[in-house]
Amino acid sequence: MPPEPAPHEAAEDLSHAPKQKEASFIKDLFSVPLPVKKLFDLVPLVTYSPNQLPQRSPKSSRIPSLYIFSTDHDAAAGRPSFNPSCLKWQTFLNIAGVHYRLVSSNNHASPTGALPFLLPPAQSNPAQDALPVPSNKILKYATDHGGQIREPSGMRYEAYQSLLDHRIRNAWLYTLYLSPGNFSSIAAPLYIHPASSNPLVRLSLSHSLRSAAAAELLKQSAVIDANDLHSEADKAFEALSSLLGADEWFFGEEAPTLFDASVFAYTQLLLDERLQWADAKLSTALRRRANLVAHRERVLGRYYGR
C-alpha cells in the first residue's frame, strides 16, 4: 500500500505547529512558582561522596601498570609473561629500574590491539590522565621517567636485532602456532582456554590465531617451509652465541640492555621447564649454545629472583 503513508505524513506535518504551541502552554502551566523555586534552590542540603567503582574495575594506581599476557596469579607474583614481546618489555622495565605493576590482560584491552602497553599512573585530576603508552614508546617513557637506560649503538645492533625480530620470531610463530603438537599442548592452554570454555568459541579462536600466524609468515615467502625456518633459526642462535662469546651481556656492556631483554624474551620461553614442548626442535637448537643458556639464567636470577 504505497500511496497511503503520504497523506498520513502530511497530516502529521500540519499538526506539528499547534502541538508546539500547546507544549509551551503546558510548560508554563507546570513551571515552578518563584517562592517554591527559591526553597528548592537550597536543595541539596548534603552531597554524598561518589560511589566507589566496582571492585573488579581497574584500580588507579600511583605507579604505572604494564598490561601483559599472563595469569592473574603469575602477574601478582611478577613472574615472566608467556608472550615474547610482553616478556621483552617486562624485562626491560625491570632492567631500567622503573617501578610498575603487572596486570594480566589480553589484546582486546589494548588501544593498539596488541599487548603489552603501559598505563601511566593516574593523576589527581582525571582530565590530566596520560594516554596509554604502546610498546614502541615504552623505551621513551622509561627514559623520561628516570629509568637507567643503556642503549648499545653501532651497525651490529640493528643487524642482530633483525635476527631476533625476523628469523627467530618466524621460527617461534611456526613452532608455537603451526606445529600441530605444540599448539594443543602449549598455545591452546595459554591463549585459548582462558578466553572461553565453549568448544565452538575455542575452535574459532584457535583457527583465527593460527591463520594469523600463517599470514604473517606468508608475507615473507610463498610457502611456509618448516625446514628453512628451523635452519635459519638455528643459524640465528649460532650468530647470537658467537656475538655474546664469553661476555656477560651482549655487546660487551657492563649491564644488561634492551637487547639482552629481547634475547631473554625468547630464550626464557624456549627453556622454561613449565612449558612442555611437543616439538622441541627450537629449544634443542638453543640448548646447544651453552652461553645463551647461561645468559638466560643470569637474567632470570637477577630480575626474577631465582
Binding site: R156, A159, S162
Partner: peptide, 8 residues
C-alpha cells in the same frame, strides 16, 4: 656470525 646477522 656477521654474515648471518646481516643477511637477515
Amino acid at each position: 656470525a656477521d654474515c648471518i646477522a646481516f643477511s637477515s
